[in-house]
Amino acid sequence: MSKVDVDVKTARAVGGQLLDWYEQVKRDLPWRRTRDPYKIWVSEVMLQQTRVETVIPYWNRFVELFPTIEALADAPEPNVLKAWEGLGYYSRVRNLQKGAKVVRDKFGGRVPDTPDEISTLPGVGPYTAGAILSIAYDVDVPAVDGNVFRVLSRIFLIEEDIMKPKTRRTFEGLAEFLIPPGRAASFNQGLMELGATVCIPKNPRCHSCPVKEHCRALEEGVQEELPVKEKKKPPRPVDMTAALLRDGDRVLIRRRPDKGLLAGMWEFPGGERVEGLSLEDSLALHLREAFGVTVEPGRLFVQVQHTFSHLQWDMRVFECAITEGLVRESDDVRWVPVGELETYTFPVAHGKVVKELGGLV
């Protein structure tokens, strides 16, 4: 099994002890009260890059607004993005809605129950496919996420880089071998639960681990050194600038392009600092190119930061006055009363500006 040798006796022991522990201590999470594959799918997509505590209210609201595959598939995208606002990584929900449309049109509204078919859905990779198939349909397939990488690397002392595709296949094969027949739903969730609550990244609670007697990393005293993972490059710092343009009680916002970072969301107009120019001059250039107007940046209204996986925005928002020209409204450019901004979907950084404006109303 690619450098990981596990005998059947050990596999059965680990599986049995993990199942017993999970049934005793599992958290009461709303998506664990259903076997609806659609609602489980929603939870798994939300839980990518997001903590459980944050996801719970979002999941409850999302499945209330879009209770079925058909409801999500038929919903206007702005409504779906608004329901997702604050969770970030918006490509997740766009793919979720695309997937819902495929399920509606190609699979008669029923989420596929085979690995080959479910893997054709947009945004559904090996982990998400495994989670849905095992939890909703009791298919004996693995679901290997970051928690599972950590747990298995420690139990079986796997010192290979988990970022490499070959290593990922090793973990998937190992996880599948460990599944007690017919118990994939509880086993997979048990592994995730163990990683989330006991076998945590720093200061793991080894004394509470149900399988500590089998943990080779604990035996060697190297549990905190695993899993082995190549360090990512730090996010690139980017100076951003944006304009707060007023017309009475209205402010100017625009929609971002349909493709690329934060696609289709609304923002206060501006952009990256132009090399060789000050923030104010960069902002004036951006607005001249976007709207054909001349603006005079005034006082700094607010400074906000936001970190993406690859970028770190430092955004300064200036109050501006138009000294020449006129901004015309369109589907993608609007003058909006401050009190109505909450009905639009903004990226987190621009959402902070909206909150600052709200305090002035």
Rank of each mutant, 00 (worst) to 15 (best):
E225F: 01
M240S: 12
D249L: 04
A243F: 04
L279A: 10
V238M: 06
V228F: 04
D239I: 07
A263P: 12
T307F: 09
V295R: 01
E272N: 12
V302M: 13
V293G: 10
P237W: 13
L262R: 13
S282W: 01
T307H: 04
D247A: 14
V274Q: 13
M240Q: 15
L287E: 05
L277F: 07
L244D: 12
D281E: 13
E230I: 01
P257S: 09
R236I: 14
V251I: 13
S282E: 06
R299I: 07
A263R: 13
E272I: 00
P234T: 03
G260I: 00
E275K: 15
E296W: 11
L300I: 12
L285D: 09
V274S: 11
S282N: 07
V295I: 14
V304R: 08
L262S: 09
G276A: 00
V274F: 09
A242M: 03
L262H: 13
D281K: 00
E296L: 14
E267S: 12
L245R: 00
R255T: 09
A284V: 01
S282H: 06
K232H: 06
L245C: 08
Q305H: 14
A243K: 11
A242R: 07
L283K: 08
P257D: 11
F301H: 11
F301A: 14
G271F: 05
G271P: 12
H286P: 04
L283S: 14
L277H: 03
L252Q: 02
L226H: 05
H306G: 07
A243N: 11
G248L: 10
P227H: 03
L283Y: 03
E267V: 07
V293E: 08
P235Q: 06
A290Q: 15
E296A: 15
L261N: 07
I253V: 15
Q223G: 10
G270E: 00
E224A: 01
L244E: 08
V295W: 02
D258S: 15
E267T: 04
E296Q: 15
E275R: 15
L226K: 06
E280C: 00
